[in-house]
Design a protein around this nucleic acid. Structure first.
Lengths: 225, 225
DNA sequence: TAACGAGATTACGAAATTGTTAAGTTAGCT
DNA sequence: AGCTAACTTAACAATTTCGTAATCTCGTTA
């Protein structure tokens, strides 16, 4: 028997769905744990430490959105993938879900092959992510060289700016809360004022003279090309 | 029994082939581990730390090409040889494979003697290649003689300076953190003051009178021509 | 429309980091 | 012991980066 490819926590209130999903994932070499609602999910996540959480949106006892918010607020799950699983083909919630830090979105009814392939590729993305280089069509962020190359021009950013920028760029489209940014770039002990992040963001925008960083009022910032 | 010549990870989805290859390699003094697909290969590579990976191209669960790409993306395997093993006599894939960082290419059906001799010579190349000389257009660093030749002029650097310089030059462009430098040049036990590295850097810059070493404030130093 | 909330800008001083020089230290040689 | 080269350290200068306060801007709300 091959070693497990990864641990997945499946959260859904419908037992039929759980069974189908669990069966297919296990068949493909994943280790699966289940939870029936958000409250349960959070507690199982704590003990099971999954690499990926498949999260239904509509559930009693804390819905998927809320659960996602709470998970993402805890830096312990920074490296945990979250994929929403939902019957709503509602685009609103898709956007909302992804902005909240989910990594993908799969609609019901579930097609096993599709499910497995999406999960495979999510894992692939994750494992690639320790990569030293984040690249986009006209932008490349090289963590090894501490260099940003924009339209062929190399730009040197000072440490904080670089860290902030590469944090945001590490998950394009995902909104980072101001707290989260402070936590990751400045660390939990350091306390800096309210405007500090803004000022750094401004300097980055200025130096790259482009708007890769988008403001989400009242929430935080996100990177998007 | 002689000591092992080297560790080889054999990756193929056909068990017959694995058996033939494994048998022949072990007969010739190599230590062999096996994997049946790309995913498995990557995980085995991590734990087994092979010197050479024999990689089949066509496999389920991540093909050889993809596996090679992922391995080569990780600098941990910079010194690992990769040899493709495939039934395709297709030249396209040969070129593609070699471009991706593979070191050789062996076609099926496998002839044991040929296989072993190709592997022997791959190892021979590797052992030669732990190169004592790092060279650039107008700069040559000879690790064997502790000599740096810049624009034809030989410069003798004292030990620490030489080690520091050749460490940085071993990965041009890559930023070495101050910690990293201390760890590798001075060792983990020795504790030296804050300015020690700077002073050495200064002396190197002075003696070569050129700016191969660039400062990345708040981070470290990097070598760049 | 005035008041308000959130972010954007700016400029500036404090803090952190590196550069430079010169003066110790140490180890090996003669 | 005396000498020398290699290393370290100390002290201070030079730079760069960072954080903050003060002031704007803009959209929203009462």
């Amino acid at each position: 028997m091959q070693s497990k490819l990864g641990k997945i926590l499946v959260v859904d209130d419908e037992k039929d769905i759980i069974q189908i999903v669990k069966y297919n994932l296990e068949l493909n070499g994943y280790e699966v744990e289940i939870a029936e609602n958000g409250v349960d999910a959070i507690s199982k996540a704590k003990s099971f430490k999954p690499d990926l959480i498949l999260l239904d949106i509509m559930m009693p006892h804390k819905d998927g959105i809320q659960t996602c918010i709470e998970l993402r607020a805890n830096s312990e799950y920074d490296d945990t993938l979250i994929i929403f699983l939902t019957a709503k083909s509602d685009e609103q919630s898709e956007i909302k879900g992804l902005e909240l830090g989910a990594d993908d979105y799969i609609s019901k009814p579930i097609k096993p092959k599709l499910l497995v392939s999406r999960i495979h590729s999510a894992f692939r993305r994750l494992s690639k992510d320790d990569g030293k280089i984040i690249s986009f069509p006209n932008l490349e962020i090289n963590r090894e060289r501490f260099l940003v190359k924009h339209n062929g021009v190399e730009v040197m950013l000072p440490r904080k700016e670089f860290e902030l920028f590469s944090l945001l760029a590490s998950k394009p489209g995902r909104v980072f809360l101001r707290n989260e940014i402070l936590e990751k770039v400045w660390g939990s002990e350091v306390i800096v004022g309210d405007r500090t992040i803004d000022v750094h963001v401004r300097k980055i925008r200025q130096k790259l003279n482009a708007d890769f960083i988008h403001t989400v009022k009242g929430v935080g910032y996100k990177f998007e090309i």
